[in-house]
């Protein structure tokens, strides 16, 4: 019993355990998503979290200890963002021909994403700092946290809202676009990238390479635009 306790105190403290658990959970989640033919609701991020959370709960592991191991994967978000350059480069001729729809859809999408969140939150009479935390929800996490802090929101709340937005967008985009009978992969990808940042972009790459490239453009451009328009929208609507 003592040996087992010693072993566990080693395992629970080493980053190796949680790094391994994260990768194994993702592999299982991804295999499940494939087995379900990438059904919209079979989201690998959501499935992985649902696999890992009970393990942390059962072993009474706090998030800081988990993140000691998981940070190595979290860190890859940076190089993965840079890696989006390749699909953009591959599709450069198509992208050059669609500069006008890209820029207008960016402005409209970004404006509606932030504006509708603020107005709906006001309709629900939410506290001011919650509304301010909600406004940048559609952009990539580092930008959203910075914007939230700048306008007087609560960054930890924004972090949660950003991830939830990503999962909601990734799960709803396929049924929504099918319902609207949109067959243009550029437009489908762009919409999910502007509304649901990287998690939406991951979904787009799962479905179609052109959709993924356009989601990547939308995410990158919206990172820029959100930091400019959210402070303005907040002044306007609050």
């Amino acid at each position: 019993m003592n040996a087992a306790a010693d072993l566990w105190s080693y395992l629970s403290a080493t980053p190796l355990t949680w790094l391994t658990v994260t990768i194994l959970a993702y592999l299982a989640a991804d295999a499940a998503a494939r087995a379900l033919r990438n059904a919209p609701w079979a989201n690998p991020v959501l499935f992985s979290v649902l696999l890992i959370a009970p393990v942390l709960w059962a072993t009474e592991t706090d998030y800081a200890a988990y993140f000691e191991g998981a940070q190595f994967i979290h860190f890859l978000l940076g190089p993965a963002t840079v890696a989006l350059a390749l699909p953009l480069w591959d599709n450069r001729d198509m992208i050059k021909r669609s500069v006008a729809p890209i820029l207008l859809a960016l402005f409209v999408g970004s404006f509606v994403a932030a504006g509708s969140a603020i107005l709906l939150a006001r309709a629900f009479a939410l506290p001011t700092e919650v509304i301010l935390s909600l406004a940048p929800k559609s952009t990539t996490a580092p930008v959203a946290l910075g914007v939230s802090e700048a306008v007087g929101g609560i960054p930890t709340l924004t972090a949660v809202l950003v991830i939830l937005t990503g999962v909601i967008g990734a799960v709803t985009v396929t049924p929504l676009m099918n319902m609207l009978r949109i067959s243009d992969w550029r437009a489908r990808g762009f919409a999910v990238g502007v509304a649901a940042h990287g998690i939406g972009t991951a979904r787009a790459f799962q479905v179609n390479e052109v959709a993924g490239a356009y989601a990547g453009i939308a995410m990158a451009l919206n990172a820029l635009l959100t930091s400019l328009i959210v402070p303005a929208l907040v002044r306007w609507f609050m």
């Binding site: 006008a100 999408g109 937005t165 909601i168 967008g169 437009a187």
Partner: peptide, 25 residues
């Protein structure tokens, strides 16, 4: 309220972006 807002706002943003993209194209 937050879940309703996130869902509605995300759907609205995707509809707005996709309609604009297709319309301008």
């Amino acid at each position: 309220a937050l879940l309703v807002i996130l869902t509605v706002s995300t759907l609205l943003a995707m509809c707005a972006a996709v309609t604009t993209f297709i319309g301008v194209s």
